[in-house]
Design a protein around this nucleic acid. Structure first.
Length: 182
DNA sequence: GGGCCCGCAGGG
DNA sequence: CCCTGCGGGCCC
């Protein structure tokens, strides 16, 4: 397992600042789109989304590797197009983001990962959690394939008036459609 | 290598 | 409502 991890890292190191992309870099070979996972713990253990709590996985140098869409935030989910809300500026409520109390910023490390992904156009893995959204799985988590960050912009949270970071994620063409829950 | 801080969990 | 566990990034 440690070897696999090292190999993955090495593969990514050689692809710093690539000029164009296929789905390859962050795509996990053999991981089928639509694969179901019980929990964040399982996603972490199988290295599909490594942080056990955070929604954005990545690093300063490589940008984002994967994101989790929980359905608990002001994200807009249209299946093949997702508007993902950045992190930061929220009141910390028992280690979870609470109400917005100040502006978000692209300087926040995790937002920075997504900015980097936007610049490099390197696709990232998208995982949906169970939610009321018709696109989310009925329980647990589901790997929904590769998405490219096609826009990064500031928006205004209508409820609070604070600035928030928004990231437009577009499904990379040629993948199975997102199942719709009825 | 160690320590610190963080976060789109999970559960009591 | 309130609390704890946990893996990671990233700084020394």
């Amino acid at each position: 397992m440690a070897l696999e991890r090292l190999r993955t890292q090495l593969m990514m190191d050689t692809n710093l600042y690539p000029r164009h992309h296929t789905m390859g870099d962050n795509m996990i070979k053999g991981l089928a789109v639509g694969t179901h996972f019980e929990s964040r713990k399982e996603l972490s253990e199988k290295q599909v989304h490594r942080p056990i709590h955070a929604g954005i996985s990545g690093s300063k140098d490589l940008g984002a590797q994967s994101v989790v869409l929980s359905g608990k935030y002001a994200d807009e989910d249209k299946g093949s197009i997702v508007t993902y809300t950045g992190t930061g500026g929220q009141e910390n409520v028992y280690r979870n983001p609470g109400p917005q109390v100040q502006d978000q910023s692209f300087e926040h490390p995790m937002n920075q990962y997504l900015v980097k992904s936007y610049i490099t156009a390197r696709p990232i893995r998208l995982i949906r959690g169970a939610s009321k959204s018709k696109y989310g799985p009925s329980e647990g988590y589901r790997y929904d394939g590769m998405y490219t960050v096609t826009a990064a912009y500031m928006d205004k949270d209508p409820a609070t008036g604070f600035a928030v970071c928004k990231f437009r994620l577009e499904q990379v063409p040629g993948q199975p459609p997102i199942p719709i829950k009825y």
